[in-house]
Amino acid sequence: MAFCKDFNARTQKYKPDKPMAVTITAFMDNTFEFIVKSPSVTWYLKKAAGVENGSSKPGHVTASTITLKHVYKIAKIKQSDPFCQYMSLESISKSIIGTANSMGIKVQKELD
């Protein structure tokens, strides 16, 4: 019961349609701890690009296009994740651009 109350209290700021990753650790003395992370980078990229899936042939067929502004916004969100909090915004952005390229989403400075 304590888990449900704690989980609901920590996750009430998230919207119902937003997926989130949760890592739960249960201990032998019936205590627990959990870490709530933001959605995956691919989910944010698909949402920013307005597509359901990435390209079936990344590198050959472009599924959609996003701007560096989108990448920056995603990087700011991901910077709050426990595993990214000590990474620079630039390195997180480079990782996001790499993920976008592997999904067939083109990153431009500005949309025409």
Results as ranks from 00 to 15, higher is better:
Met103Asp: 00
Tyr86Leu: 12
Lys57Ser: 01
Ile96Phe: 08
Asp81Trp: 07
Met103Cys: 00
Lys47Asn: 10
Phe34Thr: 09
Glu33Pro: 03
Thr25Ile: 09
Phe32Trp: 11
Phe83Thr: 13
Asn30Ser: 15
Gln85Asn: 09
Pro58His: 07
Met20Ser: 11
Ile97Lys: 11
Met103Thr: 00
Lys94Val: 01
Pro19Val: 00
Val41His: 02
Thr99Pro: 04
Phe3Thr: 10
Lys57Met: 02
Met20His: 15
Lys73Glu: 15
Pro39Thr: 14
Leu89Met: 12
Tyr86Arg: 10
Glu33Trp: 07
Pro82Asn: 08
Asp6Trp: 06
Lys5Arg: 15
Asp6Gly: 07
Tyr14Ala: 05
Lys37Val: 08
Gln85Val: 13
Ser56Gly: 03
Ser56Pro: 00
Ser80His: 12
Val61Pro: 01
Phe32Ile: 05
Ile97Glu: 12
Ala49Pro: 09
Arg10Gly: 12
Pro16Gln: 00
Lys47Met: 06
Ala21Tyr: 10
Ala9Gly: 08
Ser55Glu: 05
Lys37Ile: 06
His60Met: 11
Asp112Phe: 07
Thr42Cys: 06
Phe3Gly: 10
Lys109Val: 08
Lys18Glu: 10
Gly104Asn: 05
Ser56His: 07
Ala48Gln: 05
Thr31Tyr: 04
Thr23Asn: 07
Tyr44Thr: 06
Gln108Pro: 00
Met20Glu: 12
Asn101Cys: 07
Ser93Val: 02
Ser56Cys: 02
Lys5Trp: 14
Ser95Gly: 15
Thr67Ser: 12
Ile24Arg: 02
Ala49Arg: 04
Thr62Asn: 08
Lys37Ala: 13
Ser55His: 04
Pro39Gly: 09
Ala100Val: 07
Ser80Ala: 12
Ile74Asp: 10
Ser95Gln: 13
Ala75Cys: 05
Lys37Thr: 12
Lys78Thr: 09
Gly98Arg: 03
Val71Asp: 02
Gln12Glu: 15
Thr31Val: 02
Thr62Val: 15
Thr42Pro: 00
Lys15Val: 03
Trp43Glu: 06
Ser102Leu: 05
Phe32Gln: 01
Gln12Asn: 13
Ala100Trp: 09
Lys94Met: 07
Lys13Gln: 08
Cys84Asn: 15
Lys106Glu: 13
Lys37Met: 14
Tyr86Cys: 06
Ser55Lys: 03
Ala21Leu: 11
Ala2Leu: 14
Lys15Thr: 05
Trp43Gly: 03
Val71Glu: 02
Glu52Cys: 09
Gly98Lys: 03
Pro16Tyr: 06
Pro16Cys: 00
Glu110His: 12
Met1Asp: 15
Met87Pro: 00
Leu111Asn: 01
Lys69Ala: 13
Asp81Ser: 06
Gly104Leu: 05
His70Met: 03
Ile97Ser: 04
Val107Phe: 04
Met103Gln: 02
Glu90Met: 01
Lys5Leu: 15
Lys109Pro: 03
Phe7Asp: 06
Ser88Ile: 05
Tyr44Ser: 08
Ile96Trp: 06
Lys76Trp: 02
Thr65Asp: 07
Asp6Asn: 13
Ile24Gln: 04
Leu68Ala: 01
Cys4Glu: 15
Asp6Cys: 11
Thr31Trp: 03
Ser55Val: 05
Lys15Ala: 08
Phe7Asn: 07
Ile105His: 09
Lys78Asn: 09
Ser80Phe: 10
Lys76Tyr: 03
Ile35Arg: 03
Lys46Val: 09
Lys18Leu: 08
Thr67Tyr: 00
Ser95His: 13
Met103Tyr: 00
Val36Gln: 08
